[in-house]
């Protein structure tokens, strides 16, 4: 069963021409969409353009929105389209595809820094420098991995929805998501991990009872 869309009522009101209802939706999502855009295009001005284009497109296509997806998911897909357009324009290769490269099949990024974190995520979130740290880690992750992670784990799209938004196969999205998660784990653990309790990676052993 799909969870009901918390925005359904507001979206219906907007579709009948209620601008105040639409503005409420914009206020709710402008921050998250701006954040997503900044993390994809990595430039504030380009991110601003993406935000504006996203909500303008939303108005344009609102009448055709069939509520098959949640409003938030729909908006994320529109924003992703605009952000990808910016990336393509920047590369000045209009038809560049984000799809499979051979490096999707390279060796897995093996965990090197393994340690319990010193703090609970709920406490870390409240620390001032956390957002910057999270963004710095994201910037070190290759674009194609980063995009899947942002859509799937930050925005909460399903793997299928994320794959569709990026125009890649579901299998590809899964591999990229795993790589992104492992890379980010490595980067964040170097920061939040407890050095004193660091464990040695042990890639090849068989666990007792697991043989």
């Amino acid at each position: 069963m799909k969870a009901p869309d918390p925005d359904a009522e507001m979206v219906r009101a907007a579709r009948t021409g209620d601008f105040a209802a639409f503005e409420k939706l914009v206020r709710k999502y402008e921050g998250p969409i701006y954040t997503l855009a900044r993390r994809i295009v990595r430039d504030r001005h380009d991110a601003e353009e993406v935000v504006q284009e996203t909500f303008l497109s939303a108005i344009e296509h609102l009448k055709g929105f069939r509520e098959e997806a949640k409003f938030h998911t729909w908006l994320v897909r529109i924003a992703t389209n605009h952000a990808l357009r910016v990336l393509r324009r920047r590369r000045s290769r209009p038809a560049v595809s984000l799809d499979a490269g051979p490096d999707d099949e390279g060796p897995l990024p093996h965990p090197e820094f393994i340690a319990e974190w010193r703090d609970d995520p709920q406490r870390i979130i409240r620390q001032r420098e956390t957002r910057r740290l999270l963004d710095e880690a994201l910037e070190q992750v290759d674009e194609k991995y980063r995009l899947v992670f942002l859509l799937r784990d930050v925005e909460g799209l399903s793997t299928e929805q994320a794959a569709r938004a990026l125009g890649i196969s579901v299998a590809n999205a899964k591999v990229r998501l795993m790589r992104a998660r492992l890379m980010l784990r490595e980067l964040l653990t170097r920061h939040f991990g407890d050095e004193r309790r660091r464990l040695r990676p042990d890639h090849d052993h068989d666990a007792p009872g697991g043989v």
Binding site: G31, P111, P121, T130, R131, L134, D153, L188, T189, F192
Partner: peptide
């Protein structure tokens, strides 16, 4: 660590 990484990004405050 992976679970906490995801939690942290999911719960992070937007700009």
């Amino acid at each position: 660590n992976v679970r906490k990484t995801i939690t942290l990004y999911k719960a992070g405050k937007p700009y």
